[in-house]
Simulated scan of single mutants.
Amino acid sequence: MKKILLLAIFSLLGIGGFAQTATKEQIVSDLPELEITEGINLHIISPEPIQYVDLSTQKLTGDLPTSNIARIKITDAETDQTGKTKNPIHYSVGENIGIITVVGQSFIAQYKAVYRNSENFNTITNIHIQAEDMQPIEFNKMIFSNLELRKFAMDIIQKKADKNPIREEKDFKLGVQLNNVYVLSDYIFLDMTFKNNSNLSYDIEDLKFSIEDKKIYKATNNQSIEMTPIFQLNPNKHLRKNFRNIYVFKKFTYPNSKVMMIRLIEEQLSGRTIEMKVNYSEILKADTF
């Protein structure tokens, strides 16, 4: 495990750095305390993906087992430059052993790690970051957190799907509908419904989005650009009857000579595949909300 954990996903989000915020300054004495001891990992659970974790001293070490959980523990012994163990580290009860900083997509939270005796059976093993411990941070560009994207997607899905979808394709007793397209800031939301009119359940291998040429004269001439949603409301791998979902993309454009291709692919052996083409003109008619 690294002594100082730094996970930077800013390049993926297109973030160059933080803008100045109007939040108050933090003082070490005012930070909430987290008790920690030998032999017990402390798990800090974030409501949104963690972008960065800083451990201020070498007395703390940790990692990110998942995108929204930071795992922290006490360093048992000193190590030299080669990583070999040197002398064991001894701690005293109540000792301040470092500051833990957790940065999410829209907040920063800081805690003061305090040593407690390993014989204390009330030592906390996990905490959820609470709203009162979060300080909001602002980015140079409008970036929405996954929590905010989920809220927007829920607002959309609570609306009734239009009886006349923008696009609809049917095959193999399957149906794919593009109910509507919404835009908010630099985000595009696709409201889609999938229908299975057969008695055979559909196990989804993949749902692919790509930008491709409208006219393909030769297979080698086709320039396909795969697109991956940055967020989807409900990850689902099984389609029994009807299923509606929201897929979110960062803003994109493509010329009239190309189309967005949406492919629903079933797991083998059946391998039923259904495709739908979406023209850019239909994306341009997106609603706001």
Rank of each mutant, 00 (worst) to 15 (best):
I50D: 04
G98L: 06
N199V: 13
Y247R: 03
Y280L: 10
I157L: 06
F243P: 08
S185L: 06
P47Q: 07
F231S: 03
M192W: 08
G175L: 02
F121D: 15
T66Q: 04
K195S: 10
P136S: 13
E205R: 08
I283M: 09
T253Y: 11
R116K: 13
N120D: 15
K2C: 05
V248P: 01
T75W: 01
N41Y: 11
E95T: 11
P165R: 09
K214E: 08
N96V: 13
D54A: 15
V248A: 02
P65S: 02
L149F: 10
N256L: 09
G39D: 14
H43C: 02
L5H: 08
E132S: 13
A8G: 06
I211Y: 03
S29V: 12
P65T: 09
S198Y: 07
K285F: 11
E78V: 12
I44R: 00
Y115N: 05
K141M: 13
S11V: 05
N146M: 08
V176P: 00
F121C: 01
D155V: 14
T273N: 07
I166W: 00
Y202F: 11
P32E: 14
K251V: 11
G104R: 02
M154G: 05
P235W: 08
N256T: 10
F172E: 10
M142V: 15
S281P: 02
V181C: 04
I27Q: 10
S67K: 11
Q177S: 03
G39A: 11
I262Y: 00
M260K: 02
E119P: 00
Q58M: 10
M261W: 03
N68H: 10
M142L: 13
E226Y: 07
G98A: 06
A22G: 06
K250D: 12
N68W: 04
T123F: 01
G271N: 14
Y217W: 06
A153G: 04
Q110N: 08
E275M: 12
L178I: 14
I72C: 00
I100Q: 00
T23A: 13
M261Y: 09
V102R: 00
A113E: 03
G62L: 04
K160P: 01
P49L: 07
I74Q: 05
I211A: 01
